[in-house]
Amino acid sequence: MVPFLRLYFSVLAMTVSTVAAANTLGDPEAGKKVFAKCKGCHQVGEGARNRIGPHLNGLFGRPAAGLKEFTYSKSIQRAGSSGLEWHAETLDAFLENPRSYASGTRMSFRGLKSPEDRHNVIAYLRLFSDDPANIPEADPTATATDHDIDQAILAIQGDPEYGAYLSSECTTCHQADGGDAGIPSIVLWPEDEFVVAMHAYKTKQRNHPVMQMIAGRLNDEEIAALAAYFNSLDN
């Protein structure tokens, strides 16, 4: 908690000097392209739902951890109860390096180093925050792009007890408490996202060699079991 607060305040202090930059209006069209990096986990626009990450409609003015129906990391919950709200300035600081801003966030994203990219994506997100009733007609954002999966596979009900055993292979690298220190968090994902991602590794549509190897020998039931287990973990 203490190190987190220290970081948090130092980032706030830092943002004072960058407020002017953060207020620079970005280009929402360019921001839409930047948002492609976010789409694997976040939806925004009409019909957007919580997926691996929370939906981003009405984000401006929303307190951190502000959606009741989404399970946030403890770190983001603490930030919310300490008064963090999402605005251009706070988003700018968060997006630059999410893990240094909120050290325990499950958002497995290195950040946008380019201030221009940040301003543009913030301008894009701003389009969906004017008034929830007045969300502009936008394409419903794509979910993960790398799947075209048999519905029968998605329909398999996983056995969480088997998943708990299988998960011990995952937790050598992925932390069971959702921490992310260089290897992404995999806890509390929607089960279908988990299944889609694992099958994408299994079929080598996703590139990581360790994950291709691990997923390559898991059968459909085992992947479903893991999805059920990781979705059921306490935060």
Binding site: S168, T171, T172, C173, H174, Q175, A176, D177, G179, D180, A181, G182, I183
Partner: peptide, 14 residues
């Protein structure tokens, strides 16, 4: 390399 750092955190927690 960054992945190895993540693995170190993961396995020692495990």
């Amino acid at each position: 390399y960054e992945e190895s750092e993540g693995w170190y955190s993961g396995i020692t927690a495990d």
